[in-house]
Design a binder for these strands. Structure first.
Lengths: 210, 210
DNA sequence: CTTCATAATGCACACTTGTTTAATGTTCAT
DNA sequence: ATGAACATTAAACAAGTGTGCATTATGAAG
């Protein structure tokens, strides 16, 4: 594939951008005005060059009738990042999620381990958030949190089993004192739990579909 | 969504098919001759109907300048959700979110299309969020938003190009009035942009690594 | 030094294409 | 039967749009 000059590169970039945002191609005069040319022929020359070099293909005489044949924006070569499938639970009834029987799962998602911030070795799971106790931490009802089993550090958001129900709270441990759980919502009280505190895991990522 | 008549359905099918195979839209006369109409006005009526019912959106007076807003047919045939790789940009400088300079990507993430709420056909990209203008919508600095190029509906969060910088705002259009952009942070003003508003895409998902 | 590709101006032409107005006939629910 | 939405014909207009020719200038290659 022949190289493009700077100007040709800009033109190709613009028409692809225009196509992406408008879903139809720019006319020659639209390209002209975008680049501030005084003549449509400046554009013509570049389009001819792009076609000659094989980047686009045009239909002669017809309006906005062309296509980008060579996709200029190459894909990032597949990195070493690994994609894992994570089951989504609506709630986790009694203690730890069963990783084996996925009967309770209400769905699943796939995401690469780097983005989710998890290790493949641990069995991560996901929860669909109910309630608004973490709203001040930017976690809303309907969001999906990815939880990795493990011990929390102070400040982590954890999935904790309280009254037989999984709840999201911020885990706080000051000095060597007893840890407590803080709801990130001014309307909710903090919990100073007794010994019966079961931490199911640490929230590693939040995914929200809009 | 209002129902389509048989004829309207055929027309919509044809223009989508034409777009798929040619990557640009058919002109009115091309539609006309494909269906054997004796008058361009037969097509005009159907296009008006399709636009009125919200299936397409047209640019008045311009050639082949429209788009299909509601994707009528086309459904993923495979039950297995598909994982796509999405490039992450730190910012989009001069209006080229594509890989014109692939160096712009600061990473990539992989996620299944269902969770991200995107279509594989569109070229989605991701942005690392800077600033706090969307804090009230639960989008914080450092979050990653997945953006799909396309036209926004009122209430959508969009990536918009303002002063040569990509910014997240909520897109509001009341009735048929001019749209404006609203920051989801009480400390930030709303923007009533002039015509030079470039919407780079609609935010479909938010991913936060903790 | 000449030649060639790139880059751009200026202008006019002609085809492409969207749009309008006027009319006719159909189907369908009220 | 009556209005409303649908379907289509017909002719003409105006704007959108691609294209050609003439011309100038620059930098790299031969």
């Amino acid at each position: 594939m022949k190289e493009l000059t700077t100007r040709q590169h800009e033109i190709l970039g613009y028409i692809q951008l225009h196509f992406q945002s408008e879903s139809f191609w720019p006319s020659i005069r639209e390209i002209q005005s975008h680049f501030g040319f005084a003549s449509t022929n400046a554009v013509m020359g570049h389009l001819r060059a792009l076609e000659r070099k094989g980047y686009i293909s045009r239909v002669a005489g017809q309006a906005r009738a062309y296509r980008v044949t060579f996709d200029h924006q190459e894909q990032a070569p597949d990195g070493a990042t690994e994609v894992v499938e994570i089951p989504i639970y609506g709630s986790i009834a009694a203690g730890y999620p069963d990783g084996v029987e996925t009967g309770g799962a209400i769905g699943s998602l796939q995401i690469d381990v780097d983005t989710a911030g998890i290790r493949r070795s641990r069995r991560a799971f996901a929860l669909k958030v109910r309630g608004e106790s973490m709203i001040d931490a930017g976690i809303f009802e309907g969001d999906i949190v990815i939880v990795e089993p493990g011990l929390p550090k102070s400040g982590d958001i954890v999935a904790a089993l309280i009254d037989n129900e999984t709840t999201l709270k911020r885990f706080i441990q000051q000095g060597s004192g007893a840890p407590f759980l803080k709801a990130e919502n001014a309307a909710y009280p903090s919990l100073h739990p007794v010994s019966e505190l079961v931490i199911q895991g640490v929230v590693k990522a939040v995914v929200r579909s809009l």
